[in-house]
């Protein structure tokens, strides 16, 4: 079948619109990179709204902007705090959610489905509603400003239990029965047989939970009072709303705050685009 000229025209128009969309999506990132490498003077005088103009970019790359925020503004410390908090939270989420999802799908005990329904109802509750009581709970445990306050409350997640349960349900019981006859315990079955089968969904949980922890702002703001465990999200928020740092330093700090997520996303873009399309969320 030959391509009609009219069809070719719409193809071109479609591509142009897609490129325009991509340009709009990328513009702020280009601005961030360009301005994080400018001098203060350049952020004021050497400006352009067109990324194809040389005036959009710095004359000479000012890498010491990054040094400034890491050394003088302690961003390196906050970055490692965030990394530690995220990794501990994610490990906790994966452990408790895998166990619970297995329990809710592969084991039979009284009240199982009723308990699961109650868990699902908690998904509707906005974070702001839980903020004040949870702060009082954390205070009475004397956890304020400690690592536990930033990690433990997030370790139980109804969403991830629900998500993993769907995959456990797809695994045939016969596999389990065979292992049971051989005398394997539930924990052995879970670790040896089930976990290898749900590696892809577990990665999804890892990414969504990591992203959620890295992005958390409200709760960490409330339970950190000193720099000790302050994560990068709170540090950047304080940096840009309280003090008046110069544009190039703000952009460099934004860059540091989004770097790990960007790296994970670009490495695993195929799984992550699929995961987000299928779950409808990012954690």
């Amino acid at each position: 079948m030959e391509i009609k000229p009219k069809r070719k025209l719409t193809e071109v128009l479609f591509l142009a619109a897609l490129l325009l969309g991509a340009f709009v999506a990328l513009m702020p990132f280009l601005y961030m990179v360009a301005n994080s490498l400018k001098t203060y003077g350049e952020t004021v005088t050497r400006v352009s709204s067109n990324p194809f103009s040389p005036r959009f970019w710095p004359r000479k790359l000012q890498w010491n902007n990054y040094l400034t925020i890491i050394r003088d503004d302690n961003m390196g410390h906050y970055f490692s705090n965030s990394l530690i908090i995220a990794l501990i939270t994610v490990s906790g989420i994966i452990a408790t959610s895998t166990l619970a999802a297995y329990g809710f799908s592969k084991m039979r005990f009284p009240g199982r489905d009723r308990i699961f329904t109650v868990l699902l109802v908690t998904l509707m509750i906005p974070e702001t509603v839980l903020l004040i009581p949870n702060f009082l709970i954390i205070s009475s445990l004397r956890w304020v400003d400690r690592l536990a306050a930033l990690t433990v409350p997030f370790m139980g997640s109804a969403f991830f239990i629900f998500f993993l349960r769907q995959f456990f349900k797809q695994i045939p019981d016969a596999l389990m029965e065979a292992a049971k006859i051989d005398g394997a315990s539930h924990l052995t079955i879970l670790v040896r047989i089930m976990v290898p089968l749900i590696r892809a969904p577990l990665f999804t949980v890892f990414f969504l939970a990591f992203n959620g922890s890295w992005n958390a702002l409200q709760w960490p703001m409330v339970v950190t009072q000193s720099d000790r465990w302050r994560p990068i999200s709170v540090a950047v928020a304080k940096y840009v709303t309280e003090a008046g740092p110069e544009t190039q330093l703000r952009m460099a700090s934004a860059m540091v705050a989004l770097a790990p997520i960007l790296v994970i996303f670009l490495i695993a873009q195929k799984q992550i685009t699929e995961a987000i399309t299928n779950t409808g969320m990012k954690g």
Binding site: T96, A100, I115, G156, I161
Partner: peptide, 29 residues
Amino acid sequence: LNTDYEGFLFIAPACLLIFIFGIFPVFYT
């Protein structure tokens, strides 16, 4: 024969955490 009371142990960590930080706080508020 098919009831695994062990199941309660499997769901306990997650359920405890969700109860303490997700359900009880609603009433506390």
